[in-house]
């Protein structure tokens, strides 16, 4: 089995790494065996799952400590179709370096705010460094919390052309469903009709990622 290994990373906190990882993992879980590896010491993905209890619709979530990160990702890839890794919010961390050396794709969530964009510049450089150890590493920025009525949101795609990392055509719109999902400990897929628009956003991202 050849697994698709995806890391979700950004050195800046609050960009929506965990929200994107958890919901992407739920979307991939509907397509095949999936595991979410939580490399963030805050353990938010694990908390998310525990809030939902046994009835949540999330794939298994395993905590990834600082040791043998590459080996752990390799083991997960041996028994799953999709492996997602929620990364810690530190660019210089050894864990992040080890994760970037062991995955196929890194998704970098960026919100439509200048500090988020500036932080993603350093992430783009971290990706360049990681390619010295993992030449096949692909990377894409993913726009998060988009609001079509907001001028910054509308300018993001064009402005981010200045970076060396391409932006996915599809992103996540700011929606209450993502907060509701965290509140209930499930993914937006598990919200039924309340999550329809959010699921549409996620499905578009998943289809784009699978076509890369």
């Amino acid at each position: 089995m050849v697994a698709l290994r995806i890391a979700v990373a950004n050195q800046k906190g609050g960009t929506g790494k965990t929200t994107l990882t958890v919901n992407l993992a739920a979307g991939f879980h509907r397509r095949g065996e999936t595991v979410l590896l939580d490399a963030d010491p805050q353990g938010s993905a694990g908390h998310w799952s525990r809030v939902g209890g046994m009835k949540n619709d999330l794939p298994p979530i395993e905590s990834l400590d600082g040791r043998e990160v590459g080996a752990a990702i390799g083991r997960a890839a041996g028994s799953n179709r999709y492996v997602l890794v929620d990364c810690p919010p530190h660019q210089g961390s050894d864990i992040l370096r080890a994760v970037l050396a062991a995955v196929d794709l890194v998704l970098i969530p960026v919100q439509p705010s200048p500090p988020d964009i500036w932080a993603s510049i350093a992430m783009a450089e971290a990706v360049q460094d990681a390619r010295a150890r993992n030449s096949g590493l692909r990377a894409n920025l993913v726009l998060n919390q988009l609001d079509r009525r907001n001028a910054l949101s509308c300018s993001m795609h064009e402005a981010l052309g200045e970076l060396d990392v391409p932006v996915l055509a599809n992103g996540l719109t700011r929606r209450a469903a993502f907060r509701s999902a965290a509140l209930e400990g499930c993914s937006v897929y598990g919200l039924g009709g309340r999550g329809t628009s959010a699921v549409r956003d996620l499905e578009a991202i998943i289809m784009e990622v699978m076509g890369l």
């Binding site: 200048p114 964009i117 510049i121 450089e125 001028a151 300018s155 993001m156 064009e158 402005a159």
Partner: peptide
């Protein structure tokens, strides 16, 4: 290119220069 896009792009260039 809109005014906001210009400002964002200019900010990105400045930060890239600073980090270089």
């Amino acid at each position: 290119m809109s005014k906001v896009t210009n400002k964002l792009a200019s900010g990105i260039r400045k930060v890239k220069e600073q980090q270089a």
